[in-house]
């Protein structure tokens, strides 16, 4: 039940966006991928979802190559939420969420309701998505991933559009998914959220894995200076940290 990269190199056009990266992720935990803009976070997440073929190395699930899996089988096991939350047609929230069940030929019984509940959108289920706020839209799109009932949930910046309250609610839903044995992998820009809520943090810098450890170690003050070029320090207790500069 591991999702792993070994010696993974990814290219976009001629540019090398991830270089020789190895990491094995376990289910039941929240793993955060952090790094400055252009560090290769989204590319790594796409490759772990089996959407970008490796230029070199392998991306594997349970030891088998992701590239060798049939698209539908891969889709049943890995749910992926891209950064751009595109919704082309003005569907109802319920129909949007139900799209998550497509790899199974339709959502399982109660999966749509469960997913809506997990992101607190039950009451808006019949609303057209065009009437939702940015945060509600982002939560509906995440619920779409939940509705597929995947073993792995890979989400690119799922918290960026959310207010503080809903960030915590969505993190609680993701934590619950992890507690039930799913693997959760998030690209996060907010280092404090990664510090306080992830079990493990991968720090990427220019396509290379700079750190891979528990948050307190991976996001040390030293790493933040080296990778982001910002002199900052952590305040507060473990689990309730705040990052401040100056």
């Amino acid at each position: 039940m591991t999702l792993a990269a070994s010696g993974l190199t990814l290219r976009r056009g001629k540019a090398c966006v991830v270089t020789d990266l190895s990491a094995a992720l376990e289910p039941g935990r929240i793993t955060a991928i952090c790094g400055p803009n252009g560090a290769g976070k989204s590319s790594l997440l796409s490759a772990l979802a089996g959407l970008i073929p490796p230029a070199d190395g392998r991306a594997t699930i349970d030891g088998g190559d992701l590239a060798a899996l049939a698209p539908r089988e891969r889709a049943r096991r890995i749910g992926y939420l891209p950064q751009l939350g595109e919704i082309a047609w003005d569907l109802s929230v319920r129909n949007l969420v139900a799209l998550g069940g497509l790899p199974h030929g339709g959502p399982g019984p109660g999966h749509v309701e469960g997913a809506l509940e997990a992101v607190h959108l039950t009451e808006l289920a019949d609303r057209p998505v065009s009437t939702l706020s940015g945060g509600e839209r982002a939560r509906a799109l995440l619920a779409r991933v939940f509705a597929g009932d995947p073993q792995w949930i890979l989400a690119d910046e799922p918290l960026a559009a959310l207010d503080f309250y809903h960030q915590l609610e969505v993190l609680a839903a993701l934590r619950e998914a992890a507690r039930l044995g799913r693997g959760v992998v998030l690209v996060l820009h907010d280092l404090a959220l990664a510090m306080n809520h992830a079990d493990r943090v991968l720090v990427l810098d220019q396509g290379r894995l700079h750190a891979d450890a528990a948050p307190e170690d991976a996001l040390s003050v030293g790493t933040i200076i080296e990778v982001w070029g910002v002199a900052a320090r952590w305040l507060g207790e473990p689990g309730a940290r705040a990052l401040v500069t100056g």
């Binding site: 979802a49 959407l51 595109e86 919704i87 082309a88 799209l99 998550g100 497509l102 799109l141 779409r144």
Partner: peptide, 19 residues
């Protein structure tokens, strides 16, 4: 059905198993 998945964009559609 693949066109339904494409409502969410090409990347999301591929992640839903659309070839």
């Amino acid at each position: 059905r693949p066109l339904d998945a494409l409502t969410l964009g090409a990347d999301a559609a591929r992640s839903l198993g659309v070839d």
